[in-house]
Design a protein around this nucleic acid. Structure first.
Lengths: 247, 247
DNA sequence: CGGTTGTTTGAACTGATTCAATCTGTGTGG
DNA sequence: CCACACAGATTGAATCAGTTCAAACAACCG
């Protein structure tokens, strides 16, 4: 991932460049890019697809952040995963078993799943690409599960901030980035209430780990934040280009 | 899945039969089954691979239950996923980012990942099989995440019992099965303490939802248990045989 | 029998929720 | 430019679900 343009990774990702960057062959990339597709712009904090919607579509995030979520009986919402620019959601078949919603304003390329499925059969490299991608999201999901199950409120928030910084393509030292989340969204991701998130962020700021102003978050002590969150970025390193095996 | 022998699904799964049952071609199944492999028997509640162990292996569960887990700084353990007979763990590359441990006595077929990777390239159907499998486990992981994040202690336990019954291949009405879990394991899965699990199980029994004796659990009111756990089995239905598309 | 592992119960404690009120910033229409 | 509405952030007080600690009990096994 490192060799890809930081700016591209952080803010915007072209479908073609992103796929080429993953090591897919030009011929395959061309086939994907000429498949039926449309681009959608969605405002921040807006639902995009309801849970239970018919499948048959794949989504590629060009810019912004897209979330998958489920809603509980008593109205609570749990965000299950995030997709940053260059990441995508591949169809599972049948109906969507979670809703899709945006975090910030997001550009989504909607592709026809049927066309892609054919490509999976025709191009072994594409199958491997999808497989790697699925396994990476599985790994991230397990990280989140560990978060929810065994970490304290502050650890969860710290971990999320670390992951967000890295997945946004930012460096590791004294990071400053525009915080994409409302406190309610952080709560929906980390499985708590927005009230408590507010308190935790306050504590983090009081302890000099981060500073907040005007929708921006500046990590003042990255080492301390990763320590607090128990954050080890291994699980995020996409074995791009290579096989299933890597390093 | 329905057409596969219940007994096979529940207790024991032959590698060959299981793969054939998933719709893979005999030629491919043969290639998989003749790849270098060994069978390991592991006692209940025993670690099998440590977190951080070198990858390069794939694991197929022939009988028993295998868990992936992570350990937190303060000694707490979180079980991230379970594999029932017929299910498997495919390598993610690099080192294992979680440990493996058994729930009950388990027979594991250990396959060489390198050999399988070649098959992924050679057989599109195998790539799709792996992809489906990864997506299914991703879906189960999301279900667990929702559990941890937004459901109460009792809901989580009820949901786990439902999932276990279904994944063990049992029917839906008045199920009675030998409970594979210790209370500590249920706690490790649902992200709580064994003390609380004990209380919740007691409550469930007192409310007439289930009965326990001699390591067995009898679900007396399946409808009520699924209601309590908010359990909808859709996410478990493996689109076996079919493509990514199904239904 | 003694050792080990798992279950049960009680009492005290606490991290996080809930409810409710207030505060802040931003955009909109008059 | 102000008034107003709205969404999000902040704070306090009361409450509670689940933890922690500790002790007793049960089952199993060599």
């Amino acid at each position: 991932m490192g060799w890809r343009s930081r700016k591209l990774q952080a803010a915007e990702a072209d479908l073609r460049e992103s796929l080429l960057g993953s090591g897919l062959s030009p011929r395959l990339v061309n086939a994907i890019c000429t498949a039926p597709q449309s681009v959608v712009h969605v405002d921040p904090r807006r639902p995009f697809r309801e849970q239970g919607a018919r499948g048959g579509e794949a989504y590629f995030v060009r810019s912004g952040v897209l979330a998958t979520f489920r809603t509980s009986a008593n109205g609570g919402r749990q965000i299950l995963s995030l997709r940053f620019p260059g990441e995508s959601i591949w169809p599972m078949g049948g109906a969507l078993n979670h809703g899709l919603a945006t975090i910030v304003r997001t550009e989504i390329i909607v592709l026809e799943a049927a066309a892609l499925e054919k490509l999976v059969d025709e191009y072994p490299e594409f199958a491997r690409y999808c497989l790697r991608s699925a396994q990476r999201h599985e790994a991230i999901g397990y990280e989140w599960l560990f978060n929810s199950g065994r970490r304290s409120s502050m650890e969860r928030v710290a971990h999320l901030l670390c992951e967000t910084a890295v997945r946004s393509g930012l460096g590791h030292e004294n990071v400053s980035f525009s915080n994409p989340f409302t406190q309610q969204q952080i709560a929906d991701i980390t499985g708590q209430t927005s009230v408590n998130v507010c308190r935790v962020l306050g504590d983090l700021e009081r302890d000099g780990v981060l500073r907040r102003e005007a929708g921006k978050i500046e990590i003042e002590d990255w080492a301390e934040l990763t320590r607090l969150g128990g954050f080890r970025p291994d699980y995020l390193t996409h074995p791009a280009g290579g096989g299933i095996r890597n390093s």
